[in-house]
Design a protein around this nucleic acid. Structure first.
Lengths: 193, 193
DNA sequence: GCCTAACCGGAACGGTCGCCCCGATTATAC
DNA sequence: GTATAATCGGGGCGACCGTTCCGGTTAGGC
């Protein structure tokens, strides 16, 4: 984002990339509670090196979440363009799945220990815009009831991520996910004849 | 549970009750991360006194969760007996509401930082039996589809608690809860005529 | 090849928390 | 009232974690 006055030295650039990559995988698998020392150890550098590139633990976490968020949004928009009717359902399931294997992203979306809207207002706004967009497409396609809004969907994502962490992949997909889908579907009008 | 060989001294019994009461309220409002020293301070005793009655922080937490769980189960069974059709829905909403204002209970149900099934197998089994019972009653009353089981309901409870923590009371009740309810309702057979 | 500025790593600091210890205190039996 | 045994409470220990510091090392221009 911010231009450096001078390019990083080769070893510094290499270490920065390694730290980012290791932190990415580690936060995803074990959540945001992993100590910086541990990330430094796995990256093969000292803790001081981590702090030189990222002044606080939160700044490292933010850099990763912003990137992850970007990926999720891009993928969701592509899916929604390809199949508007399924777009929202695909997005919901993708977020549930991602959130379970990516504890950092879950915490960020749910605002646990790190206020996404405050720390990365652009990412938060773009995320909500994307949700609204995908939702609107599916509603126009007639596969989602019209009386839900983007905030409702975000709430469902938070819930689904919690469920996915609690229960296995296939069980959630085969047993609980259909219930959510049935709840979001356009209700059948009451049969009067 | 276990009988004491000699009754507690009067001041000891009073302190024990105070600690339990304060811990009950504190864990409910602020989650299980509150330090023991803080609970001791609020109860007006020293940390040593807390540890004399409860050898570890977890044992104190367990004592509280077991009690809360008992209350929730009793109340749910009474509701289900009074109105079987609404029993499951009332239970779900009650658990969501309780879980949001009772972070300790939420953590216990979801198994975060404390394995309920391992630490209090009786409470866990009774909880699951109760869920199964209430669910079966509502299914017999025809208000809940027959292809969901108690494990699905528990998963939904975990999700609802997360949602409730994320969003306010009335919003969850008015906007998201109806979606869950619609998903659990007996599906209308497809109109062929 | 040399010089210097940039960078490295890990030891160390300050703060927090679970848990224990022990001199002081107090309830209870006689 | 006195003895005594249970209880009290707060200071302290050890572990952990985020962050800083600084002596040693190395990349890169000349």
């Amino acid at each position: 984002m911010t231009e450096r006055s001078r390019p990083l030295r080769a070893d510094a650039a290499r270490n920065r990339a390694r730290v980012l990559q290791v932190a990415y995988e580690t936060f995803a698998q074990e959540g945001a509670a992993v100590p910086i020392d541990e990330i430094a150890r796995r990256a093969g550098v000292g803790a001081g090196t981590v702090y030189r590139h990222f002044p606080t633990k939160e700044s490292l976490f933010q850099a990763i979440v912003a990137d992850r968020m970007h990926q999720v949004i891009e993928r969701a928009l592509a899916q929604a363009a390809a199949d508007p009717g399924e777009g929202l359902y695909a997005f919901l399931f993708q977020m549930a799945e991602q959130g379970a294997t990516d504890l950092g992203l879950t915490d960020a979306v749910a605002g646990v220990g790190f206020d996404l809207a405050e720390a990365l207002p652009d990412a938060e706004r773009k995320f909500m815009d994307t949700v609204a967009d995908i939702l609107a497409r599916s509603q126009r396609a007639g596969t989602v009831r019209s009386d839900v809004d983007a905030a409702d969907i975000k709430t469902l994502i938070v819930g689904l991520q919690a469920m996915r962490r609690f229960r296995g992949d296939s069980e959630l997909m085969h047993r609980v996910y259909p219930l959510i889908r049935a709840g979001l579907a356009v209700p059948e009008p009451p049969r009067s004849a």
